[in-house]
Design a protein around this nucleic acid. Sequence first.
DNA 1: TTATAATACGAGCCATAGCTCGTATTTGAC
DNA 2: GTCAAATACGAGCTATGGCTCGTATTATAA
Lengths: 207, 207
Amino acid sequence: MARKPLTKPRKNASQERSRSTVDALVEATARILVRDGFDKASTNRIAEEAGVGIGSLYQYYPSKEALVAAVIDRHNRDIMQVVNAAFAEVASQPIEQAVRRLVAVAIEAHRIDPKLHRVLAEQIPRTGRLADVEAFGRETYALFRAYLEDHRDELRAVDLGMAAFVSVTSIEALAHTAVLQGPEKLRDGAVRALVEEATRLVAGYLQ
Amino acid sequence: MARKPLTKPRKNASQERSRSTVDALVEATARILVRDGFDKASTNRIAEEAGVGIGSLYQYYPSKEALVAAVIDRHNRDIMQVVNAAFAEVASQPIEQAVRRLVAVAIEAHRIDPKLHRVLAEQIPRTGRLADVEAFGRETYALFRAYLEDHRDELRAVDLGMAAFVSVTSIEALAHTAVLQGPEKLRDGAVRALVEEATRLVAGYLQ
DNA sequence: TTATAATACGAGCCATAGCTCGTATTTGAC
DNA sequence: GTCAAATACGAGCTATGGCTCGTATTATAA
């Protein structure tokens, strides 16, 4: 139990059937995490849910952590794709418009799979994947800072690093908290109101 | 393992020595959480660290979760004391001044015991103490909202609930993230700069 | 076809963690 | 001093989870 948390897959699947085994494992892990929570996600259960022998599981993933890490990576990729697209889209837009879009995207991104997102957010520290997630945070932060540099003339005089930190942290927290607080904050009207408020918060701050 | 997560202490200590046993257990739990993390905090280890028999531990706490919950409660009390004092202090101050002070206090509160704070923040979901912490969040939110009601004339027209949510969430996230990012963000100069920026963010938003 | 590699399987070993229960010791009331 | 209640103790039971390893099956290359 918790000896050396290796998180790298063990070997690369080369044949077709093995790749589908690997997929089944990752998907089963995600399903169990969502349905039953981290503590119930034993390797035996994961294998069973995936319809795969426990031995096969260990042929591809050296530990339970590695499987969860795979789920985290996949989820992060999904989110990062949305975020990247959004930044590309707003690159030449003025601040207020850009911020409004980014806020909306942040909420959307958190809604991709809220329940999975919640479980992962809670369990990331245990998987030793904190570093990855911080890297992911830094990426967003860097994208935002690049945007600010391109639009310096629209800003008041500021430390761009600080401004990016404050903006990204606030937007992320608002989206995260709103989504986790459940459906009350996610009715269509409520989302629009939240987007407006967050936009005012951040755009007002930057200008 | 994880059967019925009772979190209430089992019996009230009435004699002096038993009270010191209880204290020793809670303190040992906190120490181990900080030093070794949640997974290493087995009941046997906690008892050993406290210099107490495992049987005695179970005379006062029905489960490991109950012990962690006790630590959480204590930590929350510590923080809430600081927060309450701050709100009392700023009650009659104008917005900008009040926000500045509240931001500073938020950072201070997170620095009470950062390492413990981090571990607890990570492990709260598992302890079934989420409700308590949300209650604690709501308390802060209610205090802030009450402040806003008293100072409505200084605000632009807003939904007070929304304004409180946005303000509290942002301040909390900035303090939390800054503290967790480690010492870079916590040099005296950096703290002052962060306080100024956060104040501008929130005060600007409210007015 | 045959040989070798890749893939799949799952019974069961080992470690550990939570927790009980019978017993020993201390305290305090009378 | 005596006795009952409170407190303390820790060996060890039970459960469970991570993971190995010997074996069976399927794919591919020659």
